[in-house]
Design a protein around this nucleic acid. Structure first.
Length: 559
RNA sequence: GUCCCUGUGGCUCAGCCUGGAUAGAGCAACGGACUUCUAAUCCGUAGGUCGGGGGUUCGAAUCCCUCCGGGGACGCCA
């Protein structure tokens, strides 16, 4: 139930039937209707809704836009929409619709009736998978993972609200080159800590977290690894470390409000033979050729700049080969839509991944890759380079400790994924009023406070049917109008993969609330006004809470 | 060199996909509002050649071309 969509549909009907009537009466000629819009004008003086249909028809109808608008307006059947108060022609030929404010009176009943489902759309029987974070299990979660987590989880929540069946997935990169290096690093640290004088690998993981893991191994197993062969020892330490790291990732992301449905292991693709199988398949189809001892995928067939190696000359598959098998597996699991949230540093991988999906016979339109620009971390006004090797960066668990889950999630999702983000640690640590999350949460807390006051005074909220909303004034109606936008906002977020819009939306809504709050009292002498405002407050509270829930931010009862 | 993201008041950004009417927020600045449901709030003032140029259009921050600045990717790494 989308209030805005309902009105748009109604107005569209009105215009279309007016146009067809005009044509039937020979007032205007056209072959087909233009792709016109019914938009919400920026300026209130231009009505509640506005259409550009007359301007778009001007050319084909060989008539001045205003003239067309006049014809249309004359033919509009007002009976089709009782809440329509006035229709005006303005500017170059806009048709502006003014509605009686009563069209919003049903909203409190709708919102309160739906409760924590307000904003959601009916189930549409479409399965979507969102894969996000998928951090390498070789180190701590960094700010890039954090941003990806906030964006991916918010998007998943929004998709779920928009009527999709959503599955959240974490792809565990527990195979491949970096795991080899990880194993070597762990082994070297173990031997060093046990007193051996050996070199640490040049490109190894030099971070403190590797040392910490090895200390845990020593705590648990003492010198038992010294007698093993190097191969055995590496296998042992890497298994230990992966288990520990994955546990750490699960715990930290859970503390960040993210819980996955599926943890998918890369190793399982190798173990089940799916990687080799999919390469064989593509070879049969002619998408793979051999050169310089390696096997190449013809990604240039699909618009990529160059072909890509899938099996190296040493016989080992590349990450890309595994990813092809992985994506085939995703589609085989029956998802109608597959969304990957990737850092911008992976953008070179997009074209060939989509190409591979096509080569496998799937519509590449079913694979959406949301690229988010990277996060730059600042401390004391200086950029902190994020390197897994040096371990000098701030990890997600540290961030949650310092600024809290709510602020961190809001902050990360507030900006468009397309925009590069500077995360100023010093600023984020300030739990002051600069942080917009408090602004929104405060609105929720204030409303709950009103309800506490009301309860203390023995005031009860009336049932919606008993309340007359015509006592509400301009500011109250603006609040209701904003609340009416919520369902549409969610569907836009789901369609355009733009989770930051929810943060924007809720800041706007909170702003309207605070403004109202400072100008009017909910609890007052005027009984009917108080009744209406109490329900308006509950309507507002539900919407704020639902939006915060999608963002993964708590809605406190008091602050 | 090729590709991706980006350039909007002093600062941080939204709007661009799907063109629409005098371009919006927040922060910072300045001036106001608490004996009243939480001042983590509100109200007001000031501040903009939407990076430059060209094009399409009745109409361009939005679409196209081009140039310039910032970030990123271009490996038989992931």
């Amino acid at each position: 139930m989308d209030p805005i969509q309902k009105i748009r549909d109604g107005l569209r009907n009105l215009l279309v039937s007016a146009l067809e009537k005009s044509r039937a009466e020979g007032l205007i000629t056209f072959d087909c209707l233009p792709d016109f819009v019914i938009e919400v004008p920026r300026d209130e003086g231009h009505g509640d809704f506005s259409s550009n249909v007359a301007m778009l028809m001007a050319r084909s109808a060989r008539m001045a836009p205003r003239k067309i608008a006049e014809i249309i307006v004359r033919q509009i059947d007002r009976k089709l929409m009782p809440e329509l108060q006035k229709v005006e022609i303005a500017g170059a030929g806009f048709i502006n619709f003014f509605l009686d404010q009563s069209w919003l009176y049903y909203l409190p009943a709708l919102v309160i009736g739906m409760g924590d489902r307000y904003g959601s759309s009916p189930k549409q029987n479409l399965k979507v998978q969102v894969e996000f974070v998928s951090a390498n299990p070789t180190g701590n979660l960094h700010m890039g993972n954090a941003r990806g987590g906030a964006i991916g989880d918010t998007l998943a929540n929004a998709l779920s609200f928009a009527g999709y069946d959503v599955e959240r997935e974490f792809y565990i990169n527990d195979a491949g080159n970096q795991i080899e290096v990880f194993a070597q690093s762990l082994e070297a640290r173990y031997l060093q800590l046990m007193g051996a004088k050996i070199e640490f690998p040049d490109n190894g993981y030099a971070g403190q977290d590797v040392v910490d893991t090895v200390k845990n191994i020593i705590r648990d197993y003492k010198d038992a690894l010294l007698v093993m062969s190097s191969e055995e020892r590496q296998k042992f330490v890497v298994n230990y470390a992966l288990k520990e790291k994955i546990e750490y990732i699960k715990t930290t992301l859970s503390n960040f409000g993210i819980n996955y449905d599926v943890w998918f292991s890369e190793t399982s693709l190798h173990a089940s033979g799916q990687v080799n199988e999919v390469i064989d398949y593509l070879m049969e189809k002619g998408f793979i050729y051999e050169e310089d001892g390696a096997l190449w995928f013809r990604s240039t067939l699909f618009g990529d700049e160059k072909d890509e190696v899938v099996i190296r000359a040493n016989g080992l598959p590349t990450y890309f080969a595994t990813d092809i098998a992985y994506h085939r597996d995703k589609f085989r699991r029956g998802f109608d839509r597959v969304i990957n949230v990737w850092g911008a540093d992976h953008h070179g991988h997009v074209a060939r991944m989509k190409g591979a999906v096509q080569a496998l016979g799937y519509d590449e339109g079913r694979l959406d890759i949301l690229l988010m620009q990277l996060v730059r971390l600042y401390r004391g006004g200086i950029v902190v380079r994020m390197s897994k090797r040096t371990g000098t960066t701030v990890s997600l668990d540290e961030l949650i400790d310092e600024v809290g889950k709510d602020a961190a999630r809001f902050f990360f999702v507030m900006r468009s994924p397309d925009s590069q983000m500077d995360f100023d640690l010093d600023l984020a640590k300030e739990k002051g009023q600069d942080n917009p999350v408090y602004y929104v949460q405060y609105a929720h807390a204030r409303i709950q406070s009103i309800f506490r006051q009301a309860a203390a005074a023995g005031v009860e909220r009336k049932r919606v049917e008993e309340v007359d909303f015509s006592v509400l004034g301009t500011e109250e109606m603006q609040l209701l109008r904003k609340i009416a936008d919520f369902p549409e906002e969610i569907t836009i977020v789901a369609r355009t993969m733009a989770p930051h819009r929810i943060a924007r939306y809720i800041l706007d809504l909170a702003g309207l609330f605070h403004s109202f709050y400072n100008h009017h009292r909910v609890l007052n002498e005027n009984q009917s006004l108080q009744d209406a405002r109490l329900l308006l407050m509950e309507t507002t509270r539900i919407t704020i809470k639902n939006a915060l829930t999608i963002l993964g931010v708590s809605a406190p009862d008091q602050m």
